[in-house]
Amino acid sequence: MTTIHVLADSGQDLVKSHDSFPAEEDSEPPADELENHLRTLEVDEATIDYDRLDEAIEASMTVFDLGRRRQRTAMDSNLAPIVHQCIDVPPRVAAVPGMWHYLTLLRYPDFITSRWSQDDDLQEKFLGTQKDLYSNHLARLWWGAHLTYDEEEDHYLATHRLFNKQRLVNYVLDSSFRRYRPAAIAFAEELWDESGKNITSIAKRFNNSLSTTQLESRSKDQIRDQLGKIRNYVENTN
């Protein structure tokens, strides 16, 4: 039995109506106040390894140069599998937005701020929900890993590849086909070395084709095969 902390909706309101955080530079979440808006969930078969997670996040922030875009992407690629491993909870729990709000606001606020300081919408990296996997930063890393982890071979190769390409991860986590794991993995495996521009048109064409093709009836290999054909067409017509 593990106790999972969850920030209540009222805590979210508090952040949304906060005067300085996160809008002002070097501002911090109102931790003391937020503590009053915590709930707990008791979950069987769940563990959160904070020691390892703390260590990994701390190390990442020193190893990677967060001022450079490529480095930030590389950090995500490196951290996503670790986040997924350390936060070992069933999807039912990972789908509770408040769990991620607690982690970003009360556990790792500095990390989130550093990772996204260049971004316009820092607030959604702290808040944000599952409906929009692009938003909450830790949820994004966890779910991205969850959807691309190779269960049979027990490795995160596709996860690394997915996060290593900003355009790819954005597009995949923004599409509804991401929920079909073979599709998410096929994208990472097939398009990891494609140019950003091509990724966009390939993914768009793939999405169009799903108006007639039933995604769930396709295997990962069939999807890769199809992506290959789209890639050829896109590369040839350009």
């Binding site: 084709s209 007639t212 054909k229 067409y233």
Partner: peptide, 17 residues
């Protein structure tokens, strides 16, 4: 246009709903 094969036109997302 430029695809020729109808089957492929579906696969590459040219013919859709």
């Amino acid at each position: 246009d430029g695809i020729g094969d109808v089957r492929e036109a579906f696969e590459i997302g040219a013919i859709t709903e």
